[in-house]
Design a protein around this nucleic acid. Structure first.
Ligand code: FES
Ligand code: FES
Lengths: 140, 140
DNA sequence: TATATACCCGACTAAAATAGTCAAGTTTTT
DNA sequence: AAAAACTTGACTATTTTAGTCGGGTATATA
């Protein structure tokens, strides 16, 4: 019942960007040093963030990444979706006719997991990146 | 972001028991046939449920398992805990001094995952096994 | 224009978790 | 006695995870 590390690091890295935001791009090297995340891993993560239009890149010296939206507007859900981290606690394929145990009708628990998915998704939908920066003590 | 199959099957099997409850014990063989779950797998699952006092066993012919609490009183959270399925979306060890990225202070996202854990846990805490049986159409 | 910096991208891999199975019991009812 | 059903630990194939590696390309600045 855990998100994968790519998603967790993505949220962490973007929060870092929000804190150290300026007009300049933020380099992965800086994020790596500040947050203790492997640079090579960050590259992989930001590739996906870029493809999903969460950040845009600036190449060359003094390059880096820039948030496309402001932290106030960036939903955590969008970050997770960019990393293929679906909130899907349900066992069966969502649009498949087959149930999770191979029967033809939905299993007895299906509706329950469905409710749970909605419950979690609405949390990620409501939270913005800026919400992570509130009330933080010296925690960078 | 998925529960493991043992937890999901545990909920399914217990829901099955709740539906077919009687004064008699319900055998794993029957649950296996009705829900399409491997008998050998069910045995493993019910071992844990028994250890955690969710069910009690009756040995011998006409034996099986009986719910310790009524479905109205049995929290889904208790089932998940019995299967070691902790709701812990957070990256770091909860009581460790170390943060998820090896630094000495809590990372920038820590409070956020903490909030999420509470959000999900309260869902499982509020839901009872009997809640799964409501509004079910012919779904056994 | 050379060069250092930083993004770009696919492929690869070791380790861990998962989803089971198997074997060899014990207990109790009929 | 025999059959049904629970008990338990060990074992394994598959999949997922969490990264690393190698070899690019673009661009600012000296
Ligand atoms: S979870 Fe969808 S059929 Fe079981
Ligand atoms: S999640 Fe706890 S320190 Fe990062």
């Amino acid at each position: 019942m855990k998100l994968n590390t790519k998603s967790r690091y993505a949220v962490m890295a973007l929060a870092d960007m929000a804190v150290f935001s300026s007009d300049d791009a933020v380099s992965l090297r800086d994020i790596s040093l500040r947050q203790g995340i492997s640079l090579l891993y960050l590259e992989q993560i930001f590739l996906k963030l870029k493809k999903n239009n969460i950040v845009k890149s600036v190449r060359g010296i003094n390059g880096g990444y820039i948030l496309v939206k402001s932290p106030k507007e960036l939903k955590i859900l969008d970050i997770l979706l960019a990393l293929d981290q679906k909130v899907k606690t349900i066992g069966c394929k969502k649009n498949s006719k087959k149930s999770c145990n191979g029967k033809s009708t939905k299993c007895i628990t299906h509706n329950f997991w469905d409710e749970l998915d909605i419950h979690i998704n609405s949390f990620f939908e409501s939270k913005k990146l800026s919400d992570l920066l509130k009330n933080r003590e010296a925690r960078i």
